[in-house]
């Protein structure tokens, strides 16, 4: 019966449900966008430069891919709390705090994976670019462009990770109804309250979004093979 009610909630366009989905997508898309800019820049920088301590940084970045969301949430909470170093910003328990937490969570993933992709491309292109005297900035642009399909897949992986996590946004967002309540935190809360139809409907939507994201990643890959070689 709970499943039937869940589908009815989705089909009826329940305002509470839509608000939660909308906020979830807004927070995760913003975090993916910011983490994309930071992560791709860091990944490209690490892939194309040599400096003392680079290996250590690469290892640290790879390790940070497994950052526990609750730890990220705790650190952001401590930083943004009234007595924390960034407490004056007044961002705790706001969607912005959730964006910060998700950005911290997925930036290492995007940076580490894009570093590997760009490094592999560089190994392939290095002699050709050197022979063509390609200037530095043009090299970076060309590598990012030629690796675009792999990099989009990485961004989608980052989006998936951010959309699915619950611990960090629960801690820094506070799961405030109508303000910072997103799909994952709602599912946790409604399940504990026994309101299974809402929890199930949100679960269905979350899984549907993940399927769409992965289908998009697969489509991008197939298109790239056909059109760009």
């Amino acid at each position: 019966m709970d499943e039937t009610s869940a589908f009815q909630l989705i089909l009826s366009g329940d305002p509470q449900l839509l608000a939660i989905v909308k906020l979830s997508l807004a927070v995760t898309l913003a975090a993916t966008l910011i983490a994309g800019v930071l992560g791709l820049s860091l990944g490209a920088c690490l892939a194309l430069t040599q400096f003392p301590g680079r290996q250590g940084l690469v290892i640290a970045l790879n390790a940070l891919m497994g950052l526990p969301p609750v730890v990220v949430g705790l650190l952001v909470f401590l930083a943004l709390s009234r007595s924390g170093p960034l407490g004056f910003l007044g961002l705790l328990f706001t969607p912005q705090a959730m964006i910060i937490a998700q950005t911290i969570l997925i930036t290492p993933i995007i940076a580490a994976l894009s570093r590997q992709v760009i490094e592999d491309f560089w190994a392939e292109y290095k002699d050709e670019f050197t022979a063509m005297d390609v200037p530095g900035a043009m090299r970076v642009r060309a590598l990012l462009w030629d690796a675009r399909f792999s990099l989009v897949t990485i961004l989608l992986a980052g989006f998936g990770r951010a959309a699915a996590e619950v611990g960090a946004v629960m801690i820094v967002g506070g799961n405030i109804e109508g303000f910072t309540r997103v799909m994952t935190t709602s599912i946790a809360l409604e399940t504990s309250k026994g309101d299974l139809p809402l929890a199930i409907s949100l679960g269905i939507i979350l899984i549907a979004i993940m399927f769409c994201v992965n289908a998009l990643a697969w489509g991008v890959r197939q298109w790239s093979v056909r059109h760009a070689g």
């Binding site: 392939e124 292109y125 002699d127 050709e128 022979a131 060309a142 760009a228 070689g229």
Partner: peptide
């Protein structure tokens, strides 16, 4: 080169 790299 013997095997030239084609840009994508």
């Amino acid at each position: 080169f013997q095997k030239s790299v084609m840009l994508r």
